[in-house]
Design a protein around this nucleic acid. Sequence first.
DNA 1: CGGTATCCAGGTCGATACTG
DNA 2: CAGTATCGACCTGGATACCG
Lengths: 125, 125
Amino acid sequence: MSDYEKVCLIRGDGGSAIRGILDRIGDKWSLLVIATLDGGRMRFGDLKQHVPGISQRMLTLTLRHLERDGLVSRTSYPEVPPRVEYELTGMGRTLVGPAVSLAEWAIRHNPIIDEKRRAYDARQS
Amino acid sequence: MSDYEKVCLIRGDGGSAIRGILDRIGDKWSLLVIATLDGGRMRFGDLKQHVPGISQRMLTLTLRHLERDGLVSRTSYPEVPPRVEYELTGMGRTLVGPAVSLAEWAIRHNPIIDEKRRAYDARQS
DNA sequence: CGGTATCCAGGTCGATACTG
DNA sequence: CAGTATCGACCTGGATACCG
């Protein structure tokens, strides 16, 4: 694939391709929840424990969105007290690869970016 | 690399790794501007034309952020009328690869997701 | 031409309280 | 246990007007 075609992939028609995916997983918690669920099926409460800082509300919302998009499946057991388990769907698991490549980029370049940022801010002040 | 290590990569310490990169390029325009600049060095006005729908304000802001992080370089020529050119830095270009892999995922799965979404919404109503 | 300044509408997210 | 409901602070981004 040529570089030009790559760029077109990202830009799509008016950028809708990349917008679609970022609207889906570019929020504060989605990718974190997906990464956590990559460890295997998990209950609501466990998930809440393993995603530090997430509120109950945001975990619920995030899971609903991911479920709606078919990235996560929800299974509730009619027991008392209730038990609900979540796991990645097949499609959900295929997202982990690309997400990891972005995370790797982030980890590799974080120190340089921080340095650049400090240098930039120093120039401004 | 094991699956477990992959997940740790994304989750990092409390998810800071993935948060860092998403805060940087997860906004509405950054990745679009980067993809456009991947075509080569470009003037402010041309950039505005090639990123459909972006406002002057958001283009300026986005470019400032990318410049601050060392992903884009800015060159202004002391002429009248002024001319300012932007281009990806070396580090900026390395981001295109991972971004493309995410875009490819998005393009491949968009139809399925849309379908899942419609099915989910139909069940709710 | 390439910005900056200002205002504001809408959305996101956290805290808190309550429920089956 | 696994949610739902409500409120409010904050932030993003669009429109508009003006500037060197």
